[in-house]
Simulated assay, not measured.
Amino acid sequence: MHPSVFYKYTSANTASIVLESSRLRWSSPLLFNDVAEFQRMPRFDPTIADANALLSELIASVVFDGVAIDEERMGAPMKLLLECARHLVGNGLSRARLIELLRVEQPDADQKVERELRRFFEQRGLNRARVLCVTTTYMNDAMWGNYAESHTGCVLGFRHIAERSTPLLEAQQVSYCEDQPIVGSGLDFLLYGDSPELRARTIHAVCYTKKTGWSYEQEWRCLTWRPNEVTKQHGDYLFYPEELESVTLGVRSTDGTERLLRDLLVKKYSNAKLFRMQIINGDLKRTALPLPPVT
């Protein structure tokens, strides 16, 4: 389910800059804390190398036993291979001999695919990628400590606005796994090739997966590519005042920070609410702060 509100943890200084300018910074993955961002290429299970042996057995089953497969989805080379197999069997070729002829060893097939994928993303250039990282909760102790300057900063809440096609409508949830993410079966890849579905899973695997050590972030992200911004590694992009849903001050936020952000909300963000985190019975709790009426 797509969350209705996303949260961005910031320092107090960054929050004031964001609210003054009505701009959010989207950064290149080259600036991220996780140096492995966009570096882990996905894999097939079974691998393409293992699937080669399975493929010969499958084609033999199709030709000799009438096993049904989706021939319409096959690429032209695989359709031609199946047609040739049927022709040879029709002329007396045995099952064992067909399997022998079809079995081709490609021990480095998966490595070749990974190299091509890596080359594709390198050509796009990570300095052209712009990512907005958000999360789904304002109640994350680790995030307060790591991204809001030890609770002295704040959390900005943003809603997406469908009628204005705001970027957060396109936010996708990050997946967490220790091993290379699996995008499909090597056998399906051999049979059906580079399908739109496979491309979508591959893009998600590269751009929206991280190792499990980062799972505490509960991250969602928006991604765009800016080929005209190659000279820098970030972009500061406008958001609508109505997108700002709330500002939540940290437990250690100063009174000066509260006054500054309160004034900005009253001046520019009449629909946003103001909160402060407090420690109550050893737990973080969020309490609402009053805002003067808009005149």
Rank of each mutant, 00 (worst) to 15 (best):
residue 1 M to A: 13
residue 4 S to H: 12
residue 6 F to D: 06
residue 6 F to R: 03
residue 7 Y to S: 03
residue 8 K to M: 06
residue 13 N to D: 04
residue 13 N to M: 12
residue 13 N to Y: 03
residue 24 L to A: 04
residue 24 L to G: 04
residue 25 R to N: 15
residue 26 W to I: 03
residue 26 W to Q: 11
residue 27 S to F: 08
residue 27 S to H: 08
residue 33 N to P: 02
residue 35 V to H: 14
residue 35 V to M: 07
residue 36 A to R: 14
residue 37 E to I: 08
residue 38 F to H: 09
residue 42 P to W: 05
residue 44 F to Q: 06
residue 46 P to T: 00
residue 46 P to C: 03
residue 48 I to W: 07
residue 50 D to L: 10
residue 52 N to R: 14
residue 59 I to P: 05
residue 59 I to Y: 08
residue 61 S to E: 12
residue 62 V to K: 09
residue 67 V to M: 13
residue 68 A to Q: 11
residue 72 E to T: 05
residue 73 R to V: 03
residue 74 M to I: 04
residue 76 A to N: 09
residue 78 M to L: 15
residue 79 K to E: 05
residue 79 K to G: 11
residue 81 L to C: 09
residue 85 A to Q: 10
residue 89 V to T: 10
residue 90 G to K: 14
residue 94 S to C: 04
residue 95 R to H: 09
residue 109 A to Q: 10
residue 109 A to M: 08
residue 109 A to V: 03
residue 111 Q to M: 12
residue 115 R to F: 00
residue 116 E to D: 06
residue 117 L to V: 14
residue 121 F to Q: 05
residue 127 N to I: 15
residue 129 A to H: 07
residue 130 R to N: 04
residue 132 L to G: 10
residue 142 A to M: 07
residue 143 M to G: 01
residue 145 G to V: 00
residue 147 Y to P: 07
residue 147 Y to R: 07
residue 152 T to C: 00
residue 152 T to Q: 01
residue 155 V to P: 02
residue 156 L to S: 02
residue 157 G to C: 11
residue 162 A to G: 10
residue 164 R to Y: 09
residue 165 S to L: 04
residue 165 S to E: 02
residue 166 T to K: 09
residue 166 T to C: 10
residue 169 L to T: 12
residue 176 Y to D: 02
residue 176 Y to P: 02
residue 177 C to P: 02
residue 178 E to G: 09
residue 181 P to G: 01
residue 182 I to E: 08
residue 182 I to R: 13
residue 189 F to R: 15
residue 191 L to C: 06
residue 193 G to M: 11
residue 194 D to Q: 13
residue 195 S to A: 06
residue 195 S to K: 09
residue 196 P to L: 06
residue 199 R to K: 14
residue 199 R to V: 10
residue 205 A to P: 04
residue 207 C to D: 03
residue 208 Y to S: 01
residue 211 K to A: 14
residue 213 G to V: 01
residue 214 W to T: 00
residue 216 Y to D: 00
residue 216 Y to Q: 01
residue 223 L to E: 00
residue 233 Q to F: 06
residue 236 D to Y: 01
residue 237 Y to I: 00
residue 241 P to W: 14
residue 244 L to M: 05
residue 247 V to T: 04
residue 247 V to P: 01
residue 247 V to D: 05
residue 248 T to F: 00
residue 249 L to E: 03
residue 251 V to Y: 14
residue 266 V to P: 08
residue 267 K to G: 08
residue 267 K to V: 13
residue 271 N to M: 05
residue 271 N to G: 13
residue 274 L to C: 06
residue 279 I to E: 13
residue 279 I to C: 08
residue 280 I to D: 07
residue 281 N to I: 07
residue 281 N to Y: 09
residue 283 D to N: 15
residue 284 L to F: 10
residue 284 L to M: 15
residue 285 K to Y: 02
residue 288 A to T: 09
residue 289 L to G: 12
residue 290 P to I: 11
residue 292 P to Y: 07
residue 295 T to D: 11
